[in-house]
Write a protein that binds this DNA or RNA. Structure first.
Lengths: 336, 336
DNA sequence: CCGGTTACTGAAACCGGTTACATTATGACT
DNA sequence: AGTCATAATGTAACCGGTTTCAGTAACCGG
């Protein structure tokens, strides 16, 4: 058994002949090492965990795809669990007891949980979230604020929008907060007032955004608006539908802009002006970082991936159909 | 230690006082049982595996959501792996060595692999696939053929369509095969010829469907068609976009119908006529079945969940905007 | 008062690998 | 020839639980 172990792990030299015989016998017996026994003895699970707060957004498909690819390349396993900040029981379903490291998406864990893990030197990489108060936990996310300012700036300067409704995401979600900050910032920079009445809570969910905007529009006395900035593309679908059903034309009457550039965004009618976030890449890089942590390599704390403006038609920009014909995901980058 | 084990597993009565002390000490020590040790000793992993062939379709979000919910309810863990039929290495990343049972989506495993697992009496539930040659492996999928006949029938009888292009899915995918069978069947029943030139391979992928249909349309001599039946909604987006970019109006010039009723389907323009498949429910039921298998309960072999026609506007049916106003997912069931 | 349960707990074997340590053989160097 | 590193393999402790077996105390019916 010891020899087999050493052979499989290449942890010591094994003679040619023995190797050959092992190979042969293992094939014949269809021998597969018992994972739990390895874990117990080696104190390594060869498992990485992904902690999410829910599984309601199409955003997760590219993210998962990125993560899974890297995990598989390293011949590790991936366990997925959802875990909600409220009503939480201890312990989280995944952690040091059954994984070698954790990818924590957004607020999948509380600050206290993170601190506890960090003190135990348990490998964690944050995804779409930065570490609490100066903790040196690696983090991978995308640039939100500057690009949002660009986006809003485009609406104001280029399209002359003055009253841009903000369909914000979950209030504890970092992306959501940065996007809101960018929104306010751009308004201020252009001398426009921030109006709380123009902020709705879409929670980054299609159905919720649809309902919330529908209710808003149903009120005869709703404040006027000439554009909607939606926290993410999934919610943008709900916004588009609500506007359509109430008889608004996009972009003629109201502009709509989203965020994330999900797979369907260029296929909506009108094609959605949004921000391209490299979601699959975020998953890949975060996972690579986690594997680097396993080898205790030094890591910069926060990795901010660049985002870029994708100007399509929903903001009011018009393109010749010839241009659109060239590809389903035809990208027009707006340069200031 | 033995007492702790018995307490945690409720596998033997423990006195009040000892229980109380255990509770106290465990809290103080933040004791969490070592998963691998339990697995090794108990020969149970408390893990279910999900084997997919890829992670490219938004379809997986509701499926995963359904699965994960049930897994969590049972306090099990969920590991996810992709595994491709071609170029396969042995062993699959997940199986008897590290899970208690497997959910196998579509062709995530070959027939031989399935047979081998079945002979070992390893719990497996098939998802969107039926067992090979009479093997008694439980399976959960949706009714494809009859509903497709209804759908195509609607196009022919109600809308007078005569040349319906079929954007088919992967040729080894069962759903895809059944949908094709339904398509051919409906044509035959209505005395329409089946034309191989009207079948394209969209692979259930947005970008592929867009490209394939775009290429088809670019050919000046392409056969005439008056409708497109797309194997799934994700690909339908690609179809809608390709048609739009080539100047076709939907549904005035060409009707488009999909399958699956994904979250965004009712939000497209025009809203997509499709078939509602209870994807989240498929995930839930399949997972429940797997847990039943753990307790060796008898199970009917194949569970076929009902699907229903969702008639929206992309097929050519028209609804008053008043009706649409009532909800984002307003469902109109077509009764023959 | 006695045999037979039931309630509870401790001791120890066991799950299937990993790895520190011991052992032998071999070749290189002084 | 003697010392020493290197190669290859065997031996046995160990990882942290589960579970069988044994043993003690309390309880119950006759």
């Amino acid at each position: 058994m010891a020899t087999v172990s050493r052979y499989l792990n290449r942890s010591a030299p094994i003679s040619e002949e023995v190797s050959a015989r092992l190979e042969e016998v293992m094939a014949e017996l269809r021998y597969v090492p018992h994972a739990a026994a390895r874990h117990l003895a080696s104190q390594k699970t060869r498992v990485v965990g992904l902690l999410l707060n829910n599984l309601h957004n199409d955003f997760f498909v590219p993210l998962l795809n990125g993560i899974e690819g890297v995990v598989r390349k390293h011949e590790y396993n991936l366990v997925i669990a959802t875990y909600h900040s409220e009503g939480r029981e201890f312990p989280p379903p995944i952690g040091p007891h059954n994984t070698d490291g954790l990818l924590v998406f957004s607020d999948g864990l509380t600050d206290e949980d993170l601190i506890a893990l960090h003190e135990r030197k348990f490998p964690v990489v944050l995804v779409h979230r930065t570490p609490p108060n100066g903790l040196r936990i690696p983090s991978v996310t995308v640039e939100n604020k500057k690009i949002t300012i660009e986006l809003i700036d485009h609406m104001i300067k280029f399209h002359g929008k003055k009253r841009i409704l903000f369909m914000r995401g979950p209030i504890h979600q970092e992306d959501s907060l940065w996007r809101e900050a960018g929104y306010k910032n751009a308004l201020a920079a252009n001398g426009l007032p921030f109006d709380e009445a123009l902020v709705l809570n879409g929670e980054f969910e299609r159905d919720i955004a649809y309902k919330v905007l529908g209710d808003f529009l149903a009120d005869e006395n709703h404040p006027p608006f000439d554009a909607v900035f939606t926290g993410d593309d999934d919610a943008a679908i709900g916004v588009l539908a609500a506007l359509r059903d109430k008889g608004y034309r996009v972009p003629e009457d109201v502009s709509v802009i989203g965020f994330d550039n999900l797979g369907f965004s260029s296929f909506l009618t009108p094609p959605l002006t949004t921000v391209s976030a490299p979601t699959e890449k975020v998953g890949q890089i975060a996972t690579e970082k986690l594997f680097s942590l396993f080898e205790e390599q030094f890591l910069e704390d926060v990795t901010l991936l660049p985002t870029e403006l994708i100007v399509r038609r929903s903001c009011g920009c018009n393109f010749e159909s010839e241009e659109l014909r060239q590809g389903g995901d035809q990208v027009h980058i707006y340069n200031r």
